[in-house]
Amino acid sequence: MSRRIDAQGLYYKELNQLVRQAFSEGVTEVLLDNVNGQRYIGDGISGDGSIIIHGTPGNDMAAYMNGLQIVVHGNAQDATGNTMNEGTIIVHGDAGDTVGYAMRGGEIFIKGSVGYRVGIHMKEYMKKNPVIVVGGKAGAFFGEYMAGGILILLGLSGREGYPIVGDYCGTGMHGGVMYIRGQVEEYKLGKEVKIVEMTAEDQSILERYVSRYADYFGYDKEDILAQPFSKLIPYNKRPYGNLYTGV
């Protein structure tokens, strides 16, 4: 069952109430038209329905989300997928800062570029292994404090003349892995990360997510994979192990 809601002129509180109500009434697909900055869409919702958004959702879309698929035909703003537990987000555009902050599970596919601190403090937990795939470029502090999960950065689009990733990439990283298409200059890396050789297993993980990205956004997977990737992992699971002494 699907339900269409016109978000024009609705305050986020009313809009989200309508969305929650729809799911509680057994609707499986909610179509939101004319979304224009309303925050918290999909916030804290569990289940396996979907939300299709036309327009620009506001900050904290899919925060604490637990299931659901959200497709955005437009750009997303900051903190998309904040502390998300499960589900899929597909953004046919760019996204802002701190995408996937502390996310523990689920997948986020961004067609275009993202802002600062994307993937910050992502974690993995038992069978959960969160994934973010960014098709364009990323700002500084990409994967900061990353404690688990997979970050993939493709650099297929994005602002002319800008590097694929900003400074301090992987600062404080102590778990998980990043795959960045092409070369990353050493000086861009946080001091806790290193570049290592790709293994066959890495290649197959990469293929899996790149082919999904290509499917969602109409790219040719082989084209994307033709260029070698840099694999980044933390030096150490305990980067701050010897920082303190007792009194």
Partner: peptide, 17 residues
């Protein structure tokens, strides 16, 4: 905490949002 066993649990100084 929903993190792997034996891993450091680091709380960043600010909430980065």
């Amino acid at each position: 905490r929903m993190i792997p066993e034996g891993s450091d649990a680091i709380s960043p100084a600010p909430h980065h949002d």
